[in-house]
Write a protein that binds this DNA or RNA. Structure first.
Length: 567
RNA sequence: GCGCUUGUAGCUCAGCAGGAUAGAGCGACCGCCUCCUAAGCGGUAGGUCAUCGGUUCGAUUCCGAUCAAGCGCACCA
């Protein structure tokens, strides 16, 4: 039985009133300070019934309770504090971790169910920005977390590869572009044309007509338009792949908006058949007033489909193809209403799976307090940020550890790790104003801090010259456990719970914060205790170090961050 | 105007279904490398937890109102 169960059982034997185990379970809490114990029972609720002060009740219970199963049980003020048997508990948790290695923390919440994740989704012919980074790294981390608890994630890069902007792009390219220029620097050149278009069309609205015409041609399958579109898509994707490669992110599908071009008619038909489609101001809509939502625009006045039409087709396609148990969309919080509408329309269509759709929103990244805008040319280029971060990491290595092997590789892991970790450290919903120095910081609560801690642990293990994984009998914690080591052990034991929380809240930051806390605990231990002393406690300390290395590495992996053995 | 999100230290943020003196990091100041990587560790300074009410034995946490900020509010995605 687990510790909490033992506490509940012992409490039930001495409580003067009947209390269900579930009730007790919810009442028990973890004391703020480890010095106060490992679990506490507050006695306030008993005060009224027993006509006694909570302090007296706690003292009374402490006298009566059978403390055999615990290190000790102590009344402090109105609390009854329980202390774990540190020896036994430490040995048990360390053994578990060293045996399971990277599998530690795995659980079966998903029973293998498919979970498509709509993520990253950059627009063709536009550079990836920090906003895409958020969607990419949150989606990637959620995929790894879901896999860890036995779901089957399917990472879908829903590319923005269709829409009227291609009419504009083709127009701009025909007017000002050249093949050689684009080949040299694809995305930046295409972006340049696009931005230029928006600067010029303010004074020359006739350009918009040209753009509309080119998009119409594209939809009609005009060879020249199609050729250009395919080319733009191909070279854009090639550029994106370089970024994904650096981030270590892979996708299971690149089916973007264009993929659903031939799948929307069916949706419109279904909506019409069910009598859900109405005309309003010349457009075809689905009324959602009973959901307190704006109507969903299925078709524009000119008959063209819209964003939601495409997403409806995508949702239905994904259900049919993957038979998902959940379908996630890692998309900015500004689109919250869109996804409410999406779910509502699906519900109206009779899709009983509409509540399996979950929008995973995240906060906005601004620059100098302003919203980013590709049109206005106000972007934070992701590639540039990664370049800067890696260059800075390189510099740092030259300074701190010039003799290091595989410098370039480590610099990449640390630089990219800093950027990714920074994005995952805080609650998804937090907005933040972009600040390069903040993002590529290597000290304090950062990815490199966790990586460094892991590298320190690995370094000790290397120097010990032992292979602990093969020596389970010697994991005995023979020396007395000090407060620092005990703090680590308790954190290690929390890992599975943290994973569960991260998954149920769709919140990678739970893992990032956990990794920081564990790293902090280990660094405190490291600063005050020498591991490689040849005494009776050596094996126990090494077991602790290895367990920390395993869990830190695994936590970083779940965030999509590499953990070099040296740095 | 309506809806969603958010208001905790100078800055960036933690505070798991309310509970014991509100915690980190950065920045500031002061310490610690004859010892396993100082990308580290320790200390000092810094808070009416936006405001006002309500529920409760107890509220930073739950509810309501107010104020402030961000985002969204049909033919972009």
């Amino acid at each position: 039985m687990d510790f909490k169960g033992q506490v509940i059982q012992s409490l039930q034997q001495v409580l003067p009133v009947e209390m269900a185990p579930e009730k007790l379970n919810s009442l028990l809490e973890i004391p703020k300070s480890g010095k106060l114990g490992d679990l506490a029972f507050p006695t306030f609720i008993l005060a009224k019934e027993m006509h006694q002060s909570p302090v007296e009740i706690a003292a009374d219970l402490a006298k009566k309770i059978d403390a055999a199963a615990f290190e000790k049980v102590q009344a402090v003020g109105p609390y009854l504090n329980f202390f774990l048997d540190e020896q036994k508990f430490s040995q048990q948790i360390l053994e578990t971790i060293l045996t399971q290695q990277a599998k530690f923390g795995e659980q079966d919440l998903g029973q293998g169910g498919n979970v498509p994740i709509d993520m990253s989704s950059p627009n063709i012919a536009k550079p990836m920005s920090m906003g895409h980074l958020r969607s990419t790294v949150i989606g990637n981390s959620l995929a790894k977390l879901l896999e860890k608890v036995n779901y089957q994630p399917i990472k879908i890069n829903h590319l923005g590869d269709w829409g009227t902007q291609f009419g504009k792009l083709i127009t701009a390219y025909k007017l000002w572009g050249s093949e050689e220029e684009v080949k040299k620097d694809p995305i930046n050149k295409l972006l340049e044309y696009y931005v230029h278009f928006h600067q010029v069309d303010v004074k020359h609205p006739e350009l918009d007509d040209q753009a509309r015409e080119w998009f119409r041609k594209l939809e009609d399958g005009d060879p020249e338009a199609m050729e250009l579109w395919k080319w733009f898509r191909k070279i854009s994707l090639q550029t994106f792949m370089k970024v994904y490669d650096r981030l270590g992110v892979e996708f299971d599908s690149y089916n973007g908006e264009a993929f659903y071009n031939d799948k929307m008619a069916e949706i419109v038909e279904i909506l019409a058949d069910k009598g859900l489609l109405h005309e309003s101001r010349g457009a075809q809509i689905v009324d959602l007033s009973k959901y307190h939502l704006n109507p969903a625009l299925i078709k524009k006045t000119d008959g063209a489909t819209l964003y939601i039409t495409r997403d409806l087709a995508a949702a239905v396609y994904r259900k049919r193809t993957y038979h998902f148990v959940q379908s996630l969309y890692v998309v900015g919080s500004e689109q919250t209403n869109h996804f409410k509408q999406l779910k509502a329309v699906l519900h109206e269509m009779g899709a009983d799976w509409s509540d399996q759709i979950h929008h995973i929103p995240f906060g906005l990244i601004t620059s100098g307090g302003h919203k980013l805008s590709t049109r206005a040319g106000r972007v934070i280029l992701l590639e540039k940020v990664l370049d800067d971060a890696v260059a800075l990491a390189q510099k740092q290595i030259e300074q701190k550890n010039p003799g290091l092997k595989h410098k370039a590789e480590v610099a990449k892991a640390v630089g990219v790790g800093a950027v990714v970790f920074h994005d995952l450290k805080n609650n998804r919903m937090d907005n933040f104003d972009f600040n390069l120095e903040e993002v590529v910081r290597f000290e304090g609560e950062t990815g490199p801090y966790v990586q460094y801690t892991h590298a320190r642990a690995e370094s000790i293990l290397r120097k010990s010259g032992k292979n602990l994984g093969e020596l389970p009998d010697q994991l005995r914690i023979s020396s007395q456990i000090n407060l620092e080591a005990w703090g680590i052990v308790k954190k290690l034991a929390d890992f599975p719970t943290m994973i569960e929380r991260a998954v149920t809240e769709y919140e990678p930051s739970v893992i990032a914060k956990y990794a920081l806390h564990l790293a902090k605990a280990f660094n405190q231990y490291y600063a005050h205790n020498r591991v490689l002393n040849d005494d009776a406690g050596l094996n126990g300390r090494l077991a602790l170090v290895e367990a920390v290395a395993i869990v830190l590495k695994e936590a970083l992996r779940l965030l999509g961050v590499k953990a070099p053995d040296e740095m």
